[in-house]
Simulated assay, not measured.
Amino acid sequence: MIAIIANPAAHNFSFEKLIWVKKRLEENKKQVDIFITKKAGDGTEITKKIDGIYDTIAGFGGDGIINEIINAPLKKSALAVLPAGTTNVLAIELFGLPNLKTATESLINGKKEKAYLGKINQRRFILMAGAGFDAESVYHVNPKIKRFSGKLAYILGGIKAFLEEDSECFKLKIDDKEYLVLWAIVSKIKHYAGRFKISKSVDLKEPKFELFFCECKNRKLLLPYCNAALFSGMHNYTNLSFIHKVITNKEITIKGTKIQIDGDYFPQSEAVITVAESIELVR
Rank of each mutant, 00 (worst) to 15 (best):
F170C: 10
L240C: 02
A153K: 06
L107C: 04
L25R: 12
I108T: 06
P143N: 13
D33S: 14
L97Y: 09
K197M: 07
K171H: 05
T104L: 11
S167R: 05
A153L: 08
R24D: 03
T253Q: 15
S199L: 10
Y116A: 09
R283S: 11
Q268L: 04
G263H: 03
N109T: 09
E26F: 08
K255F: 03
G41C: 12
T102M: 08
I126V: 15
G194D: 02
F125R: 01
G256C: 07
G158N: 06
N218T: 01
I36Y: 00
A131M: 11
A3H: 11
R195D: 15
S201T: 12
I2M: 04
M1T: 14
E277L: 03
V81S: 06
L100Y: 12
K250Q: 10
V282D: 03
I185S: 11
G43Q: 11
D51C: 10
C226K: 00
F212M: 15
T87D: 06
S187W: 08
K17Y: 12
L107F: 09
T248V: 01
L107Q: 04
I5C: 02
E277Q: 13
G85F: 04
K250H: 02
I185L: 15
S269K: 15
G61N: 06
P98M: 05
F125T: 02
G158Q: 05
L211T: 11
N67E: 08
T102I: 15
V272A: 04
I243N: 00
I69A: 05
K29W: 10
N218G: 01
G85W: 02
E105D: 14
E178V: 14
A72W: 07
L74K: 10
K188V: 03
V141M: 10
G61S: 08
N88R: 04
I120M: 10
I5G: 00
I4A: 07
K250T: 00
A9T: 15
K188R: 15
K173I: 11
I120S: 05
K114A: 08
I273M: 04
K250W: 00
G61H: 07
L222I: 08
Y179E: 12
I174D: 07
F266R: 09
G59H: 06
F60M: 13
V81H: 02
L211K: 08
I65D: 00
L74D: 09
G256N: 10
K146C: 08
L107A: 03
F133S: 01
I65W: 05
I185D: 04
G263E: 02
A58V: 12
D42M: 09
V81E: 02
R123T: 14
F95I: 05
M128V: 13
G256V: 09
